[in-house]
């Protein structure tokens, strides 16, 4: 199973690790639902930026959330395949979970997936 990475803050990484990606998550001061869950293959390529960059920038925006962190999770090929389309070919390293495009299936198996939090 490929390992997918998501750069964020430590607080959010722990929350996602425990409960799965939350499409209804609202960032403090924002007011808009997250709607989706963006990850990248641990092997890259990183055409949209590295998870470390996202983690550092997110931690800078939210300094009370425990610093940068990277959530790593092993996701079955069959679930990843649901995200692949003409916009997000796997060759570009991005695995984008949207409603109707893998997000529900990812949440359904989340509790069974091996995962860890790394320092960002």
């Amino acid at each position: 199973m490929p390992i997918l990475l998501h750069g964020t803050t430590m607080l959010r990484a722990k929350r996602i690790e425990a409960n799965g990606p939350d499409a209804n998550f609202v960032e403090p001061g924002d007011g808009t639902r997250a709607e989706e869950f963006s990850t990248c293959l641990d092997a890259g390529p990183f055409h949209l930026g590295t998870p470390e960059q996202y983690a550092r920038r997110k931690a800078a925006l939210f300094p009370n959330e425990g610093g940068p962190a990277i959530l790593a999770v092993d996701v079955p090929d069959g679930v990843i395949a649901l995200t692949v389309d003409e916009y997000f070919p796997l060759s570009q390293g991005v695995v984008q979970f949207d409603a109707g495009a893998g997000l529900e299936e990812l949440r359904a198996v989340w509790s069974t997936l091996p995962k860890e939090i790394r320092q960002g």
Binding site: E86, Y87, F88, P89, S91, Q92, V94
Partner: peptide, 9 residues
Amino acid sequence: HPTRGVVGI
């Protein structure tokens, strides 16, 4: 109708 994903767009 992208042919090379977001990078190509």
